[in-house]
Design a protein around this nucleic acid. Sequence first.
DNA 1: CCAATAATAGCACGATCGTTCGTATTTTTT
DNA 2: AAAAAATACGAACGATCGTGCTATTATTGG
Lengths: 219, 219
Amino acid sequence: MSSRSSQVGARTRDVILQAAADVASVEGLEGLSIGRLAVQMGMSKSGLFAHFGSKEELQLATIEVARKRYVREVLVPAMTAEPGLAALHALCQSFLSYVERGVFPGGCFFAAAMAEFDAKTEGPVRDRIAYCQSLWMTSLEHSIEIAKQKRQLRASVDPRQLAFELEGAMLAANWYVHMFSDPSYMERARESVRSHLVRGATPTGLRVLQTLDHPPPPS
Amino acid sequence: MSSRSSQVGARTRDVILQAAADVASVEGLEGLSIGRLAVQMGMSKSGLFAHFGSKEELQLATIEVARKRYVREVLVPAMTAEPGLAALHALCQSFLSYVERGVFPGGCFFAAAMAEFDAKTEGPVRDRIAYCQSLWMTSLEHSIEIAKQKRQLRASVDPRQLAFELEGAMLAANWYVHMFSDPSYMERARESVRSHLVRGATPTGLRVLQTLDHPPPPS
DNA sequence: CCAATAATAGCACGATCGTTCGTATTTTTT
DNA sequence: AAAAAATACGAACGATCGTGCTATTATTGG
């Protein structure tokens, strides 16, 4: 059988990687140590190592499970929203909620990984992190473009610029909440998102945003 | 003699720490290794180690020289501006220029350190980084308050909120410029700073901002 | 010029790092 | 039931980590 999904080891492997993702969000992907991870899992270093064959493979596999968790906890919940401005709003709220809920103990996994690898020597790990980050930015930009097509955001709105500003507020909240143990930075980010969306919105867009704040009673 | 300033070792110590700050901005303060640093300096590991006595002391001393470099390259150049909105503008431009000039090869030292330690166990290093970061935020907020007193920014402007949004844009630029090797993110941050300042400005403040973009001919 | 002191080097330590290898145990397939 | 494959373990490797101890070399003050 080519897939590992029915094998026993696949479950073990996944349990290892879930723990690895948690550790890496705090200690960094380089700070991930096979020995400490093995102790934490209650298994031998070589036994754990055999699942991956190299530390780099462990790091890449950790990124993959982190990405899946990210998709499940951030992107999927936002998919229920109507494409366009509502989806953009949902993506931002979903991200902030994901940080707030502690989906990763160290805050956003990819924010931490980006900060760790942004200046480092190129390699598969760095490339993968950059790719994941660009996907996230693209999904923001895409929703902005849909919103423009729907005349919910003004034609003058630059999708990449708006995505950059939203992402800046969300990233800053991610760092500051942990660094200063001050959850009020989440509200600052929400205020920032709200004001950016309101500022770019057309009258049509404003109605959409009002609907989101005061959801209509189920008919 | 109590001061080390006239001793030979003080110069050596400073050269070591300048290199350490450069390395740490790329590899992180934990990634700083005494052995590799010694090789890079062309001296023995124990000889280098003797200057500090422990890795933690090396990290703290590295933070200190990084802070001094930061003050010299970011804060001091901005001090020529008139207190208030002009100073706020100068602080943001100075920070972005400092990232752009590569004052630290890995981007902003303190942004990297904050991202590295925000989720980690408490300790003197983490505390010091948090303190340095809070000083920077406070200096932004202080300039905003002066600008409000001078009626350059509207009374409705929340200093901490505005500082948060400016910092978000600058931090995001710091990461993205390196991660995607795309200097255009610096312009995105400048655009973000400009629009935030214009939006909060009173007519008086707008005149100040215009003066900054089109400096008056020396009388 | 000599004694005191500061600065550096050499060496070794225990710990941990990623990695390899051989082997035993379990699970799956034939 | 036998064979094959997957899974895990224990031991050890060379390298590097931070950190001590001791000797040696520079520098400085009397």
